[in-house]
């Protein structure tokens, strides 16, 4: 396999949905992210990878408004052409208005609510409007009833996609781990996002669950055209489903391009050496691949 020289600028369509420019985030004396710029293209799966502590989750938290960046600009352009400056918006508005949804590294489900209820909570803002901010709904007007039925239909749709329809009436906390991951993604999709941020969705999954996840993610992209930003450690997921990879180390971007390009970037290999065991194995494999490529 020959090393590829593709970079982000070579992608065919240049229609970024998310533009991160000169993003910096400082925690006390620690520079978690330092002057980071990258773009995520519309309709693509962009992966954000890097060794532990590289600042991936911090980028996520900046994009989704849970942290306010020290410096920089994060702009999100919807398909309608409407542009939002995410760094200026509170977290819940980013989901509500800019249509950016996210999941969490440590799953955050409403464990005491049923699977179905989890998905209904995600449709809060649509339902809130339909219920006339509760007042009309309390009176039992049909508008709310219709919206309520529609919300259950949407929930059903995503439950089927996530293979959770059988468990719809069980408490979310009762699901096995892999199903909880899928439920969290389905819940995020119920907010009707244009841009979906997934924080290590494959962490802790067994191979079968991993496969189900891949299927769900590619299905989401194919059917809804939702763009995805993904943090992942599992290289098989990254390499298989992402269109574009951004590599971080110590809060800085060290590589940016197609999976093949990144895989063969010596900087990336260097960054991964001497980190976590499983990742070292990955890297060693990759080096061997490069060496083989060099011989050809």
């Amino acid at each position: 396999m020959a090393p590829e020289t593709n970079t982000a600028t070579d992608t065919m369509t240049n229609d970024p949905i998310l533009k991160v420019e000169h993003l910096s985030m400082r925690f006390g004396g620690l520079m978690a992210i330092n002057d980071l710029s990258f773009e995520a293209q519309r309709g693509e799966i962009t992966a954000l990878i890097g060794p532990n502590g590289a600042g991936k989750t911090t980028v996520f938290n900046c994009v989704t408004g849970f942290y306010k960046p020290t410096m920089g600009m994060i702009s999100m352009r919807q398909a309608s052409g409407k542009t939002f400056l995410l760094e200026r918006m509170p977290d819940f508005e980013i989901t509500r208005d800019a249509k950016v949804a996210r999941t969490f590294q440590n799953i955050r489900l409403f464990t005491g609510l049923t699977v179905l209820e989890n998905l209904l909570v995600a449709q809060h803002n649509t339902l809130m409007k339909a219920s006339g901010y509760t007042i009309l709904g309390l009176l039992g007007l049909p508008a709310y009833k219709n919206a309520s039925a529609a919300s259950i239909e949407l929930a059903k749709h995503w439950l089927e996609k996530a293979h959770l329809i059988e468990r719809a009436d069980d408490p979310a906390g009762d699901l096995p781990y892999g199903a909880q991951r899928r439920l969290e993604i389905a819940r995020a999709m119920c907010t009707g996002p244009e841009f979906l941020c997934l924080d290590e969705p494959a962490a802790g999954l067994n191979p079968r669950e991993s496969l189900a996840l891949n299927e769900l993610l590619t299905g989401i992209r194919r059917d809804t055209g939702t763009s995805i930003l993904l943090i992942e450690h599992d290289m098989s997921v990254v390499m298989e489903i992402s269109d574009h990879v951004v590599v971080l180390e110590y809060g800085q971007k060290i590589s940016d391009g197609t999976p093949d390009h990144v895989k063969n970037d010596p900087k990336v290999i260097a960054a991964y050496l001497g980190v976590e065991d499983e990742e070292v194995e990955e890297v060693i494999e990759e080096i061997e691949e490069i060496e083989e490529g060099g011989k050809h």
Partner: peptide, 20 residues
């Protein structure tokens, strides 16, 4: 109603609520 579900969701996990 959505507001009541949001209350219960809030009891379960406030951060997840904000993310939704």
């Amino acid at each position: 109603m959505p507001v009541g579900r949001a209350w219960e969701a809030l009891r379960e996990d406030e951060i997840a609520c904000r993310s939704l």
